[in-house]
Nucleic acid binder design. Structure first.
Lengths: 145, 145
DNA sequence: TATTGTTATACTCTATAACTATA
DNA sequence: TATAGTTATAGAGTATAACAATA
């Protein structure tokens, strides 16, 4: 069976991302959140008063998609809004939300350890910087190398 | 602005995958296919007579989701089915499909080059093997290293 | 009994456009 | 005029369960 995709970097990247994300979601299931919710909660907890738009900007999520996401977190009592001015709100984590963030943090750290453990020690540093080079908005050329 | 996710491997993996996938889809737009269609077409073209189930197994796509996907490729005249036995069909690429595969192959190779070009030469080998270690179903432990 | 393909369905995530109310 | 948030909507992609026909 010939798999013409096996040696494609982009393909391996997608499979690795999909698989590890699924693993993380299984871990997070216990707390009733998905990885996106977890990311937003973490971001709010470490940036008290951050706006919905700013979160979207950092995480690469459209403003329009942030609205129902934050609304869900608010309904569950994990997050509260405080008006900054007439049009924007600062988001904060509630005490319940803080408990959830603690659980999420532990879970994500465990997940991270699990990922890192699969990579030979000697490759970790190179992997890390190569990965960042792929998506970080640094200038890059189309030349072969 | 504190980004608590920036140093998480899983997060970088997801962002890199999402970004590069979006780039590939833009490139493939010219041929009216998305990356999933492209993967399936490539797989069929190099494995004439492969079944729908087998493709799903290799690419990690549910049988139930393969059905409409293949149906779409068939409607567009890119793929044909030939009965193997009463319940399974072997898939083949038509001449039109072969032209499309040629375009896709070129596009994907260009995309690959673009990805590789972002990674320092000295990191490429380590990146490649580390990436495979993450999703390839090899045994791994939970230990720190 | 197990397998191939199918249907139905639902959920997550993403993308766009248009609207409101503020600044 | 630009920005924050919202609404509506559509499209990918993925997941599960159940079914018919066949092996």
């Amino acid at each position: 069976m010939i798999d013409p995709l096996q040696n494609l970097l982009g393909y391996a990247l997608r499979r690795a991302s999909a698989m590890t994300l699924a693993e993380l979601n299984v871990r997070l299931e216990a707390f009733g959140v998905r990885h996106v919710d977890a990311s937003v909660l973490l971001l709010i907890s470490q940036n008290d008063g951050i706006t919905l738009s700013k979160i979207g900007e950092i995480l690469g999520i459209q403003r329009a998609n942030m609205t129902p996401l934050v609304a869900r977190l608010e309904e569950r009592g994990l997050v509260i809004r405080a008006p900054i001015d007439g049009r924007s709100h600062g988001l904060s984590v509630t005490t319940t939300g803080a408990d959830c963030v603690a659980d999420i943090t532990t879970t994500m750290n465990d997940h991270e350890k699990s990922l890192i453990a699969r990579i030979p020690l000697s490759h970790r540093e190179a992997f890390r910087s190569a990965l960042d080079a792929l998506w970080t908005p640094t200038h890059h050329t189309e030349s072969g190398d």
